[in-house]
């Protein structure tokens, strides 16, 4: 036969477990995102969007967030690929580094433009129908 104290600790443990799981499901995660694309002679040559879960905690405060529609239990990669145009427009608004070089050799021109978003930590809040993505600074 269990004592009252023992039962109390058991129920407390159960409740704390449920609470932890519910928090973990809706908890904010941090992701590292970088983006780079290359234009050669006015034609898109290469485009790279890299998304990875941060392995250590990022410092900074969130700003300029974006809401993307999301299915339940969908990963960030899937959410972004579903709303790619919207997300890339948003990345442009955040600011991209521009590198441009043009070489004119005997009146023949060759140009290269590289636009880069350096690896930035984003805080992502997953909810039932949407994900809130905001960079940390």
């Amino acid at each position: 036969m269990r004592s009252r104290n023992g039962n109390n600790s058991f129920t407390l443990a159960i409740f704390s477990l449920i609470l932890f799981h519910s928090l973990a499901l809706n908890a904010a995660s941090e992701y590292l995102i970088s983006y780079r694309y290359v234009i050669k002679d006015a034609t898109l040559y290469n485009e790279q969007l890299t998304i990875a879960k941060s392995m250590k905690k990022c410092l900074g405060n969130p700003y300029d967030s974006i809401m993307l529609e999301a299915d339940t239990n969908a990963s960030l990669k899937k959410i972004i690929s579903k709303n790619k145009e919207k997300f890339i427009d948003y990345i442009h608004q955040l600011g991209l580094n521009i590198q441009h070089s043009q070489k004119v050799l005997n009146s023949q021109s060759k140009s290269t433009i590289i636009l880069t978003l350096k690896t930035t930590c984003f805080k992502v809040d997953f909810n039932d129908n949407f994900a809130k993505i905001s960079p940390l600074k």
Binding site: Q93, L94, G95, L96, N97, I98, Q99, H100, S101, Q102, K103, V104, L105, N106, S107
Partner: peptide
């Protein structure tokens, strides 16, 4: 040989 190189580096947001 005549060569002209132009370059720019900036951050625009």
């Amino acid at each position: 040989r005549s060569t002209v190189r132009t370059s720019v580096q900036a951050m625009v947001k």
